[in-house]
């Protein structure tokens, strides 16, 4: 039963993302899309992948990959987010 409910929730969320992207909300379109994607991922991880009720070790392993990806993005953004300008194009192509 809980599998079916999870599936139903996923379908509703899918409809929500798709619909939301036809409403102009500026930056919040992206926020909504990503938020909903995270919710979907969480549902899949908790119920289909049984992270709910899994041992602490498994949970740590499950978030480590994401955490490390966040490190890559976060620390790179200390550079990319604070560059005065985009790099100049080079035209001396082979």
């Amino acid at each position: 039963m809980s599998y079916f409910l999870t599936w139903l929730a996923l379908m509703v969320l899918l409809a929500l993302t798709t619909a939301s992207s036809y409403i102009p909300m500026g930056i919040f379109n992206t926020v909504a899309n990503m938020g909903i994607s995270c919710a979907k991922a969480l549902l899949i991880a908790l119920f289909f992948m049984h992270l709910r009720g899994a041992s602490a070790l498994l949970r740590i392993a499950a978030v480590t990959g994401l955490l490390w990806l966040a490190l890559l993005f976060g620390l790179s953004w200390t550079d990319l987010g604070t560059r005065p300008s985009a790099p100049a194009p080079i035209d001396a192509r082979r």
């Binding site: 620390l75 200390t78 560059r83």
Partner: peptide, 22 residues
């Protein structure tokens, strides 16, 4: 060890701010 890679890029054109953090 995962937090310091920018020290290979000090003169590469990355931003000053990033250089200081790294």
């Amino acid at each position: 060890g995962f937090l310091v890679w920018g020290h290979h890029m000090f003169v590469s054109g990355q931003s000053m701010y990033a250089g200081m953090v790294f």
